[in-house]
Design a protein around this nucleic acid. Structure first.
Length: 357
DNA sequence: TACGGAATGT
DNA sequence: ACATTCCGTA
């Protein structure tokens, strides 16, 4: 009935994924913010559609309203969603129920009075100053700019941040940036070009949010952890910690993704085509809510009450975690006495001080 | 058209 | 958890 709903796992290799010669842990291949699952979430999917020009007539950002989007063709969106989820009976009624569940979670809210119009809760979004990709093209100073990140960002959490960050950067960059900063989205396709004429029927969902896709598609497109800079709170809350770049581990020889077939399958499912996106890097910003916890939730990140604990990790090898370098760069700005630790002397690991709610 | 409870599924 | 399905209500 619905074709091609199967065999669309993210390409992983028994425990790890190989990307650019690195072994990525499984969690890094989960395409959404919910650890433990690699099922795409609706809001991801929505963002995905919103990012693609070919769906503009189906769903689109509402110009002028940051984060607001209109579902122009509810049936079609539902159909696409149903396709992605292999739920051929999906319809807008059901889809909208799922959207309504986001109200409580503060991920979305309804724009009252406007049909089929919803809005992402950007009011609480952390900002994004720089692109995650192609950072090396940027002048060094911007790379090394200190960055604020909520303290104790667990790896998974950070990953979620990156996903969301990245997805939103695209929108911010392409559409929400104020005039002065607005730059066109530059989209570079992989060598195997993505068909430009993609009928909805042959749908082209595109796993924009999966690091596996992006990282796997082109070796040079590793995330760089270039900055999470919250929108100018004059003095950041004490539970934010300062990070210094570079977060990109300097080593990393560029290698092709072993076994990468680089198919351009754009059918629904987590299989990701190699289309690559490059986000321009004007400083972008979104508003912040109040309180770091709020901020986190905003980012669609879960827990609050975070702290960073340091603990030595197993020495040297054994942990080819690409994010490790990031944490190794974490520093704790302690008031006064406790001076900055040498980022290299110790590995850091973020852990929850409280169980996620 | 929109909302949200309830049961159910994965 | 995050939907999906169904449905009563506004």
């Amino acid at each position: 009935m619905h074709r091609s709903c199967l065999a669309e796992g993210i390409p992983t290799m028994a425990g790890n994924s190989w990307i650019s010669g690195l072994a990525f842990p499984d969690w890094a291949c989960k395409a959404e913010s919910s650890p433990g699952s690699r099922q795409i979430q609706l809001w991801h999917f929505i963002l995905e559609l919103l990012q693609k020009e070919e769906f503009r007539h189906v769903i689109a950002w509402q110009q002028g309203e940051y984060g607001e989007f209109v579902i122009k063709d509810p049936d079609e969106v539902a159909r696409l969603w149903g396709r992605r989820k292999c739920k051929p009976q999906m319809n807008y009624d059901k889809l909208s129920r799922a959207l309504r569940y986001y109200y409580n979670k503060k991920i979305l809210h309804k724009t009252k009075g406007k049909r089929f119009t919803y809005k992402f809760n950007l009011s609480k979004l952390i900002v994004v100053n720089y692109p995650l990709w192609e950072v090396r093209a940027l002048p060094a100073p911007s790379l090394f700019r200190p960055t604020l990140v909520p303290m104790g960002v667990q790896r998974k959490l950070l990953h979620s941040m990156l996903l969301t960050h990245w997805a939103l950067v695209e929108q911010l960059a392409g559409q929400w940036a104020p005039e002065g900063h607005r730059r066109p989205l530059r989209i570079r396709r992989g060598a195997a070009a993505v068909p430009t004429t993609k009928r909805l029927g042959s749908a082209t969902t595109h796993c924009l949010l999966s690091p596996c896709c992006h990282l796997g598609s082109l070796p040079e497109e590793r995330p760089s952890f270039a900055s999470f800079t919250p929108p100018l709170p004059p003095s950041p809350p004490s539970d934010w910690t300062r990070l210094s770049g570079p977060f990109l581990s300097p080593l990393l020889p560029e290698q092709p993704f072993p076994g990468s077939s680089r198919t351009d399958t754009l059918l629904p499912g987590p299989v990701c085509p190699p289309a690559t996106w490059h986000v321009p890097g004007p400083p972008l910003l979104a508003g912040l809510g109040q309180g770091a916890g709020e901020r986190l939730r905003l980012l669609f990140l879960r827990p609050e009450g975070l702290e960073v604990k340091t603990r030595p990790l197993m020495g040297g090898k054994g942990c080819p975690d690409p994010w490790e370098g990031f944490f190794a760069e974490m520093q704790r700005p302690k008031t006064g006495e406790e001076s900055l630790r040498s980022p290299n002397s110790e590995n850091f690991e973020a852990v929850w001080s409280l169980d996620p709610p």
